[in-house]
Computed example of a mutant assay.
Amino acid sequence: MKIERLSQDKIRIFLTFDDLLERGIQKEDMWREIPKVHELFSEMMDQAYSELGFDASGPLAVEVFALPAQGMVVIVTRGKMNGQSDERATDDEDTEDEIYEMEVTMEQSDIVMYSFRDFEDVISVCKQLQAASLTEDGRLYSYNGKWILALEPALIDSSRHNAVIALLAEYGEATSVTYAMLEEYGKVIMPSDAVREICTHFYN
């Protein structure tokens, strides 16, 4: 579980599928009201407080983005208390009550995204993807000092999807950035056919 502060009242939490499995939670469970998910959210908020000093009291807007190969991104935005006092449940018998007032939004993206520190790694993975006839598609972004390659699964043979992920993971790492954030804040370097373009221009 990785937590980072986006602003004074907003944090982003990146959960890998391993994080979910360790807690006995399937990806689909995040859409359901079950105790395990509430426990996970409480754990996330406790960690956010201990690591960042983020106090999750008051109304919270929670956005959950499911990413196909990486895991899940949870963005928590703290609202104003409107003068109400902060009363958290402390007794065991009160733990069944809603401690957090949440407005939850769920989004699922099929876009596969991996980030790379060095452009040489981007070139290497693109050459491997092309050589293995896995894909020549993709959009390349620059975001926060890293290169991010985004692939549309619909343009990848479903039987070879895992092979694509394996290659991407060999050279890069799963990114906790959502596609919506990438579109809004990232810089588009190659809008289409990124794998083919990179192999054409950087072939040796």
Rank of each mutant, 00 (worst) to 15 (best):
M72K: 14
F54D: 01
V112S: 08
R23L: 06
P68L: 07
F14S: 09
E28K: 14
D94R: 06
D91G: 11
D9T: 11
T16H: 08
M30S: 07
E93R: 12
L21Q: 14
S57R: 05
I75R: 12
M45K: 11
R5C: 00
I111W: 12
A89K: 15
E98G: 07
D110K: 11
F41G: 01
T77A: 08
F17T: 01
E51G: 06
I99C: 06
D94N: 07
E51L: 15
D86I: 15
M1Q: 05
E43P: 02
E39P: 01
E43W: 10
D9Y: 11
L20Y: 08
L6D: 04
P68D: 06
A89F: 11
D97A: 14
D18E: 14
I99F: 03
Y114R: 07
M45Q: 06
I11Y: 14
Q26F: 14
E101T: 12
Y49K: 15
K2W: 04
F14Q: 00
E101G: 14
Q8R: 10
R88I: 05
R117A: 11
S50Q: 06
R32Y: 06
V73F: 00
E22M: 13
V74G: 00
D110V: 02
D55A: 15
Q70D: 14
R23C: 02
A61G: 09
I25V: 09
R117D: 05
M1G: 12
I3Q: 02
T105V: 13
Q8A: 08
Q47P: 00
F65C: 10
I11K: 11
I111R: 05
I34E: 04
D91I: 03
R117P: 00
D29M: 13
D29Y: 11
S42E: 05
Q70L: 06
M81K: 15
Q84D: 09
R78T: 01
S57A: 07
S7K: 09
K27M: 13
F116D: 02
R5Y: 01
D46Y: 05
T16K: 08
I25L: 07
E51A: 15
E63H: 12
Y100P: 05
K36S: 02
L60W: 01
D110I: 03
F41N: 00
M30P: 04
Q84L: 13
M106T: 04
L60K: 09
L20G: 03
M30H: 04
E93Q: 14
D46S: 14
G71R: 00
G79R: 12
E4W: 06
R117L: 06
R32N: 03
Q8L: 07
E22D: 13
S50W: 01
D9C: 01
E98K: 15
R117Y: 10
L15R: 15
M106S: 02
E103I: 10
S115F: 12
V76F: 03
S57P: 00
Y100I: 01
I75K: 12
M45S: 02
L67Y: 05
D9K: 10
E22T: 08
R12G: 00
F17R: 13
E101S: 13
M113N: 05
G24H: 05
E93M: 09
I99N: 15
G83V: 10
V104R: 08
V73I: 04
R78M: 01
G71Q: 07
Q26R: 15
S7W: 03
R88Q: 13
Y49T: 11
